[in-house]
Amino acid sequence: MKKLVSVKDVCFGYENELVLKNVNLDIYEGDYLGIVGPNGSGKSTLIKIMLNILKPSKGSIEMFGKNIDDFRDWGKIGYVRQKATSFNTGFPATVEEIVAANLFSRIGIFKPITRSHREMVYKALEIVEMEKFNRKLIGNLSGGQQQKVFIARALVNSPEILFLDEPTVGIDLDSQREFYGLMEKLNKEMHITIAMVSHDIGVITEKVNRFACMGDSRLICHTNNSHLEITDILKEVYGDKMNLLIHRH
């Protein structure tokens, strides 16, 4: 299977505190990878390093076989960041304008948006069933609808891999259910590789096909999803009082 992302011996620290210690992680084509771990275990930092937002103090990242610093094909990557929906809700932008933004790099500086770009925006909105809202102001939508718009923005370039950092925070239960349904559709039907950081351990263990657990600044495990194995690992990370309840969305 094709390796899309390779994290090699990565270390990272904020001032004197080491957040990641020698982390190694590979993401393969078709993976639906869930990354869990307690607060401050370095999950979001790891995603940001993979996306070259943060620079590791040691180690390297390869994206589609290229060193991340030489990687230019950002259209292959979609990203829905943490608290994506906590933007300035007074920003006067329509759903269409927000989704089209991710095409700007492909369109190029000094070039206008054409009809074919608008069609790409429409298709991305169709995938998340938000095409009827294309002229609405983003700030006037509900949290769940906004989340869908940000997923559409991440999908507009037809990415091969989608990174999501705690995407269900602040979203109601119905919207969460819809969200996980959409992720399954993207992974199974559209063959998009997914790497998702989440606190929702119960759902993650139920939905994903690969599982990574961070704790004490290390990657404790990176495994295929197996409930028995995962329960033991989570007890190691979160303590013995932790009971894993699998609930289906």
Binding site: I53, W74, A93, A101, F104, I109
Partner: peptide, 16 residues
């Protein structure tokens, strides 16, 4: 269009 994206989401624009 680039100034618009940076104004809305600077981190997103960088990754794009």
């Amino acid at each position: 269009k680039e100034l618009f994206y940076i104004a809305f989401d600077e981190e997103g624009a960088r990754i794009a």
